[in-house]
Design a protein around this nucleic acid. Structure first.
Lengths: 341, 341
DNA sequence: GACCCTAGCTAAACCGGTTTATCTCCGGCT
DNA sequence: AGCCGGAGATAAACCGGTTTAGCTAGGGTC
């Protein structure tokens, strides 16, 4: 019933523990003949090395880590991370150590522990902040890490991201080509790096844009939409926007419902674009910026594996998100067009 | 930079390694005075025990495991598991070791490894099969486990579940009270225990029910709905059903879309009920059987913690799923009612 | 023939804890 | 005084690997 250890193999093969270790790991120091014998014995005994013991003597931990900072309840709604995890797992044979914590300081403490205990070989860093302290932490600890979704270069870390700047620009250009001039944006958390990037892209491509902050919840999306449609927030002389770009699907759907309840026709009077496609958008027939999160996760996994194998960290830019045009966007309403011209 | 070990504490406190271990774990064998001194030194040095080393000497691994057998791509759509994980994490301070494998035999091999290496303290068993081999495996390994979502008692294991039988019965009674007689069910995978339970409940409460097998995908839902609406599958003399109960939200939504495309009015001519509520159902205004998966996960976590603390395994029945009536169910259509009477 | 290298292997230390065996000291009992 | 018992501490073994120091035998060089 007990699983064979390296000692059992050594006894059975008539060699020392050390020799077995060398033989199994393909290192020099044993003759080919001995190696073959050890391998034969090992496989006949059904030997599997213990990652726990191996991790203790500072080798591989056969696991990678992902820490999410979030109020637990909120997690369930974010299909993004689940897709990401699924993609990661599709490329990695090692297990994923997943932990949800409630504060950024807990997160950092957790990385320190994991590192000190060799519990993980590397980690994924998500939800990158502006000037994120984790970046320098990773370098100082020497813990291999891949930044997921934080555009640009981060210290000595590898990074995988989609170009939010270009994507936002293309969305705005698309809306402009339809004749829209009063374009608003319902943003995500302003502490996140990608929010800032999108803000910048938005403001530099829209002549006179309005940004409202949100937090990805339906409530925030509804509230922002209500404010925008009342016209009170804009600098457009009290006029409401003719198009709104939301930072995620949940807020966009909530916004669409608010519009419907206020009798604002979509896309007749208001065009709506969602960031991140999902079944929700598909079903609500919302025009959405679609990216393949599963493939994104797979790419992140490959990047981490590369770093673990000693490759020098590289920045990989994911394919540009693609705008899937559905029924929620259309030409600018005649009245609005008139007021501009 | 290096993290303090038990040896450092021993040196600083002027005692032996063993004494430190006893002191830190609150065990007898050291004087209260020594214990206090050791604790003081430990906290001043910022000592944190290494779970890796601790796991090696057959103590706690500070982690629990969850293995999902699934083609990776399919994972992202199943909000159920993410909600479950979120709930689990809300009640557990230890990390969750998550791994997705592609076959049941891989899953079993993984449990053996985890157990042999003390990598996890316990595991959650999901997607329970009829006569599931994992149940006896856990007992023979002595690996603490909680069966999640498999109704009934399983060997010596603790179990947490919702009463699918009663839930299905209540759904059918609700439909009957609306006058429905030709009721169909689009089921999930027939290898799963809860599918069988629901089948049984369905067949014993509907006089003359029809069950079509599905696999939780939109395609399966659409296909099944098309067949049912054509009337070819039923024993109702070629008549289509007036109500369909789907085994998950994705299939239900797909079914609703098929109905719409065929010009079948919902709920005018066809009532639809989904198992498992979600944003999808909320938005599609589908009547759904809602359960709080997050709370379910939390409950499962508590059950596992109890087992880990030595409590004898118990079976916990979760609160009954609640039927949320929305716009997709209504009285039986006059024509159909007439044909029955 | 003396000397040096190196391949091939063993013994032992090490990682950071837990646990057991042992040792010492002190007090109580007869 | 002699014996026993228990509290309090230590040293050492152990978990299952990796890694390093050291040992031996054989071959090449001068």
């Amino acid at each position: 019933m007990k699983r064979p250890t390296i000692k059992d193999i050594a006894a059975a093969a008539g060699v020392s523990k050390g020799a077995v270790s060398l033989a199994l790991n393909g290192r020099s120091g044993v003759s080919e003949e001995t190696r073959a014998r050890v391998l034969a014995v090992a496989s006949s005994l059904g030997y599997r090395p213990s990652v726990t013991a191996r991790a203790l003597s500072s080798a591989s931990a056969d696991a990678v880590g992902l820490v999410l900072v979030r109020p637990p309840r909120a997690l369930g709604d974010e299909a993004f991370f689940f897709q990401l995890i699924a993609g990661i797992q599709s490329e990695m044979s090692s297990a994923l150590l997943l932990q949800v914590v409630s504060s950024r300081s807990d997160e950092i403490e957790l990385y320190r522990r994991w590192w000190a205990e060799h519990r993980v070989d590397g980690v994924f860093l998500v939800d990158l902040l502006v000037d994120d302290p984790r970046v320098s932490l990773m370098s100082s600890l020497g813990l291999p890490a891949v930044v997921v979704g934080g555009a640009g270069h981060h210290g000595s870390l590898a990074s995988v991201w989609a170009d939010d700047y270009a994507a936002m620009t293309s969305v705005v250009l698309y809306l402009k080509s339809l004749g829209h001039r009063r374009i608003a944006r319902v943003a995500g958390l302003s502490s996140l790096l990608h929010t800032v990037r999108r803000d910048q892209a938005f403001l530099s491509s829209v002549v006179d844009g309005v940004i409202v902050a949100g937090d990805y919840t339906a409530e925030a999306g509804a509230l922002a939409t209500r404010s925008l449609l009342s016209g009170e927030l804009s600098g457009w002389g009290g006029e409401p926007p003719t198009a709104i770009v939301y930072d995620n699907d949940v807020m966009a759907v909530a916004g669409a419902e608010v519009a419907a309840s206020l009798g604002v026709a979509v896309p007749g009077e208001l065009s709506i674009v969602a960031w991140d496609d999902s079944v929700l958008c598909q079903h609500g027939r919302l025009t959405a910026l679609s990216r393949d999160t599963f493939a994104f996760g797979a790419r992140a996994a490959r990047a981490l594996l590369a770093v673990l194998e000693g490759a020098s960290p590289t920045d990989v830019e994911d394919v540009l998100p693609e705008l899937v045009v559905r029924g929620s966007t259309g030409g600018v309403p005649p009245s609005a067009g008139a007021s501009v011209s």
